[in-house]
Simulated scan of single mutants.
Amino acid sequence: MKILVTGSAGFIGFHLSIALLKKGHEVVGLDNLNNYYDVDLKYARLIETGIDPTEIAWNKEVRSIKYNLYKFIKLNLEDKRELMAFCKKNNFDVVINLAAQAGVRYSILNPDAYIQSNLVGFLNLLEVCRHNKVKHLIYASSSSVYGLNEQIPFSVEHSTNHPVSLYAATKKANELMAHSYSYLYKLPTTGLRFFTVYGPWGRPDMAYFLFADSIMAEKPIQVFNYGKMKRDFTYIDDIIEGIINVLEKPATSCKKWNGKQPHASSSIAPYCVYNIGNNKPVELMIFIKELEKNIGKKARIEMKGMQPGDVIATWADVDDLIKKFNYKPNTTIQSGLKKFTDWYKGYYSIKELSQLRVETV
């Protein structure tokens, strides 16, 4: 298939693009390379996929020197005219939308960025899929949509009507927008609610990455709600396996769906929503101890109260994904964090050496 992966210079998009290429798919990656976090890391991911950073320019397709079925384009989803022209020319079979303005806490400070990227950008993608008869749209939702819901594990049949951050609200809006297009235009859409994804090449704004930075630098780490938090940490390889399994089976109409007793995760339209997580929540303090062990240093911990927009626990009920797609998340925290810290030490030692060479010259 010919597949568009948006957010391809991001953490999940980078890993997914490589996995799809190894399966023989033709992939075009799209990213605007914004500076929400370290742009050098985004460029480093692109270099890993064979994209020459010196060739990158707005609305220019750059072919990989490593994968002959991979191209990259720097583009904003908000630029509807350019996006429509680009997608019409490429005639994609599948679109996987991982591009978004991420971050719960950042949404409190910069709400406008979330409206433009997560709502306007997503609408433009829906229009692209509608007008180009895309066979399947897969898009990233988030565990954040569960908001004030306290029933655990989180089920796709639980209420998601009480978000506690604008980020979460935009992800819930994406699900509603997708359903309307599935119903009106018979566009198969699949939403995936990601649960705290971690691993090599991860996002520097995520807690586990910030913890690693501070522990390595022997600086204090801030632990919110006095450490009484649980997260369904999910290793990147398990996430990628789930996405690829879903890719091969587009959403279909649920024949048993009943408007008088409607299921929230399916529809008479070709629409589905799934949780994608590890289904094994871990206490935050246990996670930190494992990180300390792998880094080889003790954390200096500053206990803090609850942060606005945060939730105490996440736990994914992934039964639907297991039944329909044989999803098997099997990476333990011990194994996953070792892989992350091994990468982390290697990446930053190489980066420091390269910076030292530049300063010396």
Rank of each mutant, 00 (worst) to 15 (best):
L4T: 07
V5C: 08
G7T: 03
S8I: 01
I12Y: 11
H15F: 10
I18P: 09
A19P: 11
K23V: 07
E26S: 09
V28P: 04
L30W: 03
N32Y: 08
L41K: 06
Y43T: 07
Y43L: 11
R45W: 10
I47T: 13
I51A: 12
D52T: 13
K60A: 09
R63H: 12
I65C: 12
N68A: 12
K71T: 15
K80S: 07
R81S: 15
M84Y: 10
M84H: 11
M84A: 12
A85Q: 14
K89G: 05
N91P: 00
V94G: 01
V104N: 08
Y106F: 06
Y106L: 07
P111W: 08
D112V: 06
N118F: 01
G121C: 04
F122W: 10
L123M: 15
L126R: 02
L126E: 03
N132V: 04
N132Y: 03
K135M: 00
S141P: 05
G147A: 11
L148K: 12
P153Q: 10
F154H: 14
V156N: 01
V156W: 02
P163A: 03
S165K: 01
K186T: 02
F194R: 00
G199N: 03
G202A: 06
D205F: 00
S214P: 09
E218D: 14
K219M: 11
I221H: 13
Q222I: 10
Q222W: 09
V223N: 14
N225H: 13
Y226K: 09
D232F: 02
D232G: 02
T234G: 08
D237R: 02
D238C: 07
D238H: 06
E241C: 14
E248C: 14
P250M: 08
K256L: 14
N258S: 09
A264K: 15
S265W: 15
S266G: 03
S267K: 11
C272F: 04
N275V: 11
N279V: 15
I286G: 02
F287D: 12
K293V: 05
N294Y: 12
K297S: 05
R300G: 04
D317L: 02
V318M: 07
I322E: 15
F325H: 15
F325S: 07
Y327L: 08
I333Q: 10
K345C: 08
G346E: 15
Y347M: 09
Y347F: 13
S354E: 14
S354I: 04
S354G: 04
V358D: 00
E359K: 15
